[in-house]
Design a binder for these strands. Structure first.
Lengths: 271, 271
DNA sequence: GAGTGGTCTAGACCACCTC
DNA sequence: AGGTGGTCTAGACCACTCT
């Protein structure tokens, strides 16, 4: 009889760490609205008692939730539920464009796969993926729309064995999430380095993105690696920032004052 | 007799937490080269014994160093020194453009303050800073150069009391770091929300940044708050991404060998 | 097999915030 | 004054890595 209400207690037999299980339970409460935006979570001690865990374990769960943007922690005051659902594409998030835009919102992302095949990799991809010169790899070119509007064009370069996995999935049909497919196959993104530039749309790129030549676009280059620092993806994306909201979150998540006023937290913070 | 070599042991009387002191000692070893890039740090247990701390405290220090990009941790293998010095402007970093570009490198940042005064704030700033409608605030407009090349133009909007602090500092002369000044005054950045767009340089902005009208620029908007979620800065920056290397770091810092993808710096990007 | 970090426990003291 | 989170200790067991 751990967990409050009718929720499941922590599964002590599961291979999944307790702190991840607890974070998942709390995340579900926030999504379900049991914990409304701005609501204060029970104190760490209270959570520890309720779920029959050590406080250090509870803190680990809260740390995870904060990192993922589900809660905001304030020293000596408590943890508050935030709603990470009204942000745009989180540039330093572990999720991809698809997940960020679709998850928990009424946004429709459609994908047209323009190219998906094994080819000799360009030098930039070979270097980023730390492969021998002249290596082949899997190339994935996709044009993606947000609610019917052309949003971005991306090129992914994947190492051969990763590409083989992807080619057998539903990603080449335009239906699957590349990020999700890779995660399920064991390629969980542990880290990535990305650069951001402003470039002018030219020639074919302008046509694809339905803009006039010269229109400013965001160009993002990214190298991703797993927990063993093994690079498994290098991609370049051209983004219409007039269509896609691109964001970067630093440190503690926002108190949700960007769009809608937050009565709870707002009142506590104000004099 | 804690600390290896001649380094100071942890100061048990200091108000600064042990884990921060330990992180600082290790950071210095990395900067000094005692721990070369790619070197493996002593194990957590070893560090705990050496510095006479509990392992949990050592882990907290390592977590901090990883977050700041000084080390890379790999499960069950150890922590490795990384060199965060060859990156560009870290978009999700807690440091500003000045600190990122100058720290530990031979880059010269010059600043021209074009405006520094108390004025009625625009609606966007009032909203971001959570001030009453019609509030006044401090405005700081600056043109900044990197090694003599025009790099960016920024406008900061600060709440009255924060602005008063800044106006009495050396920031208006173009010599001080705004970020550093705020930090010393107790406004430590706990979090920030930033948006990134690609826009075309127009009119006065094109003149200021010495580019042809229509040239793509990165436009970044940012709201910063402290540990109490109190907003203390809203700013907008127009960046020449052909001059400034703008990066985003996700999760675990990159391995020493694989740095961020290189943007087309120096290549003229205009019609 | 020895070493390492990941996870977990059951305490403790303190400064700071709210009441 | 009592509650809260920040910090710290001294253990423990385990799966995985290295050699």
């Amino acid at each position: 009889m751990s967990g409050p209400d009718g929720s499941e207690p922590i599964n002590r037999a599961s291979a999944q760490p307790y702190y991840q299980q607890l974070a998942e339970r709390i995340r579900q409460q926030i999504m379900a609205g049991t914990l409304a935006r701005g609501d204060r979570l029970p104190s760490e001690g209270e959570l520890a008692t309720t779920w029959d865990l050590a406080r250090a374990t509870v803190r680990e769960a809260l740390r995870l939730l904060e990192e993922q943007g589900w809660i905001t922690r304030i020293a000596r005051r408590g943890a508050f539920a935030t709603m990470p659902s009204q942000r745009g594409w989180l540039l330093q998030g572990r999720e991809g464009f698809f997940e960020d835009e679709v998850e928990g919102r009424q946004r429709r992302v459609t994908t047209h796969v323009l190219r998906a095949e094994l080819v000799p990799l360009p030098a930039s991809a070979v270097e980023a993926l730390q492969l021998p010169p002249g290596s082949h790899g899997y190339v994935l070119e996709r044009l993606r729309e947000l609610d019917g509007e052309v949003a971005l064009f991306s090129i992914n370069y994947l190492p051969p064995q990763v590409g083989a996995l992807v080619s057998r999935s539903d990603v080449p049909t335009g239906e699957g999430s590349l990020n999700g497919t890779l995660r399920k196959a064991g390629y969980a993104l542990a880290g990535a380095a990305r650069t951001v530039e402003a470039v002018a749309a030219q020639g074919e790129m302008a046509d694809r993105l339905r803009v006039r030549p010269g229109t400013p676009l965001l160009k993002i280059k990214s190298t991703s690696w797993d927990a063993n620092l093994q690079s498994f993806d290098y991609h370049e994306v051209w983004v219409r920032s007039d269509v896609v909201h691109v964001e970067v979150q630093v440190g503690t998540p926002a108190p949700a004052h960007a769009s809608a006023p937050s009565p709870e937290i707002g009142r506590i913070v104000s004099p």
